[in-house]
Design a protein around this nucleic acid. Structure first.
Length: 504
DNA sequence: ATAGGGTTAG
């Protein structure tokens, strides 16, 4: 077999065994060492995720080209093996070489992965110095880096400086970055801008889950519906699984379980995430029985739950007080599925036991664990249960653990304070307050809001600043003193001229 | 050869 033939064979290898056979052939035919052939083998191994095979070969190569260095750095990065990626990059620099436009994008991913923004900023300097700013792939990775490291302003300046070198990936990065930074209205605004600029392009479906999640997290169902309509107009009912999943999730988050169910029933592509999302939607709406039913149906259809599915079902049982089902699922995840429960699963179990009033049992569960693996979320769930059931003994244990683990989290002090207050323990209340003052902690007030005609109306506890607060409090007073049945949900209010009202 | 999307939890 010729070198050329082996090269092209290697480039089409999709399995471990064919790759190894080609590798063996190159040795048998004494074609090694040869940089091009070895690089082909390297690439074939890394595509299969066989990093140790690739590394063995790479270390033996007497000669390396830019391509072989880039393959190693990029594939270590994709496998989240950032330390190895950095080591290879350092060895590369030792040889006196300079990165090219293939080397640079993974470096930004490394910086995000290891949480070291200074490395990424240094790489941005390299991009400018080496003149790769005009290459859209490189600039997009710079953009992604700034967006994901929380420096949105830097990303914006990269974005506006390169308006000649944008493509759909650029827009998607901006939109999803805004969403991840919690800047939901900026994400929506950016989506509209993109539609204006891209009218001639084919619409890129990769944007849609991000924009849906921005609308959903804002709780703006009208916007979710708007995007849904947009999807139907442009894709018909052939949306892929991530789009369907995002629709289900965000209708649920906006309070419309009916719409979630409709999408779930009609969507063509269903995967494990789809099931998990629908289960957690039922959980969010307090419909634990439906969650359990769906969980069983999912397994009947041959899907194996993963760690996220199990968290969703446990949380759902907890919200609905389904103690026995929750316990059964928790123990079967160990015996039937061979899962090692994660911290989240334990937190769910503590939450479940705590809500149902089994605080001693919850505490025993945590005491059985190695103390270093008990997380804040587990103690937090226990403390919340103690608030619910006014249990001061266990509440103090949980609270003091939390004061150690997360001393600046005000809600823990407020929770303990609430237990003391509900039991009339004035001394306890003042001790906790003094402790908070000593640490100069201020409680951020809880806030709710409602969108009316595109404008958000915010409400803080005891806040009277809204122009209609007088009427709002009157309505609230009536509602809270009225036993509502489902028939009453269509009730109307008649507003009198003097700002008072009656139910109609 | 390189860049972008979805699910839990308080």
């Amino acid at each position: 077999m010729s070198r050329k033939l082996l090269s092209s064979l290697l480039r089409s290898c999709t399995t471990h065994s064919t790759t190894s056979q080609c590798h063996a052939q190159t040795i048998l035919q004494s074609l090694l060492p040869n940089v091009i052939l070895q690089t082909d083998i390297l690439l074939a191994y890394t595509k299969l995720g066989l990093m140790s095979h690739a590394r063995k070969l790479f270390d033996k190569m007497p000669q390396r080209n830019m391509h072989s260095w880039n393959i190693m750095i990029a594939s270590y990065t994709h496998s989240s093996m950032y330390f190895d990626a950095v080591t290879v990059f350092q060895a590369f620099k030792q040889c006196g070489s300079l990165p090219d436009h293939y080397t640079l994008p993974p470096l930004f991913k490394i910086s995000i992965g290891i949480g070291q923004p200074c490395f990424g900023r240094m790489c941005h300097g390299l991009v400018v110095k080496l003149g790769y700013e005009e290459i859209v792939v490189v600039t997009n990775s710079v953009l992604e880096f700034y967006m994901k490291c929380g420096t949105v302003s830097q990303a914006l300046s990269v974005f506006s400086n390169h308006n000649a070198h944008r493509d759909s990936v650029t827009w998607n990065l901006m939109i999803s970055g805004f969403g991840k930074a919690g800047l939901y209205s900026d994400a929506v605004h950016c989506f509209r801008e993109m539609l204006k600029h891209q009218s001639g392009y084919e619409l890129d479906y990769m944007t849609l889950p991000s924009i849906l999640s921005a609308c959903g997290k804002e709780g703006d169902m009208l916007k979710v519906k708007e995007v849904h309509g947009f999807i139907v107009r442009n894709f018909g009912f052939h949306a892929d699984a991530p789009i369907g999943n995002a629709l289900i999730d965000n209708y649920g988050k906006c309070g419309s379980l009916k719409d979630s169910e409709n999408v779930f029933k009609t969507v063509g592509c269903v995967n494990l995430v789809t099931w998990t999302t629908m289960i957690s939607c039922y959980g969010m709406h307090g419909k634990g029985e439906e969650s359990v039913f769906l969980f069983e149906k999912m397994m009947d259809e041959g899907f194996r739950p993963n760690a996220v599915t199990l968290t969703a079902i446990l949380a759902s049982c907890s919200h609905s007080g389904l103690l026995d089902q929750g316990k059964k699922i928790f123990s079967s995840m160990i015996s039937d599925y061979g899962f090692e429960p994660t911290a989240e699963h334990y937190a769910c179990m503590v939450d479940l036991l705590g809500r149902c009033g089994y605080l001693e049992e919850a505490l025993r569960l945590l005491k059985r664990m190695k103390s270093s693996s008990v997380t804040g979320s587990m103690w937090g769930a226990l403390l919340a249960g103690c608030v619910m059931h006014k249990n001061v003994e266990i509440g103090e244990v949980a609270a003091h653990q939390l004061f150690q683990l997360e001393p600046n989290n005000t809600s823990n002090y407020v929770a303990l304070c609430g237990i003391y207050r509900s039991l009339g323990m004035a001394r306890g209340v003042s001790t906790v307050r003094a402790k908070m003052r000593g640490l100069s902690l201020v409680k951020t007030p809880g806030c709710s809001w409602i969108n009316i005609a595109g404008r958000a109306h915010k409400f803080y506890q005891g806040d009277l600043s809204h122009p209609l607060s007088h009427m709002i409090f009157q309505i609230l007073y009536v509602i809270s003193n009225t036993q509502l049945s489902t028939n009453d949900l269509g009730v109307g209010y008649l507003l009198h001229d003097d700002d008072t009202f009656v139910m109609a």
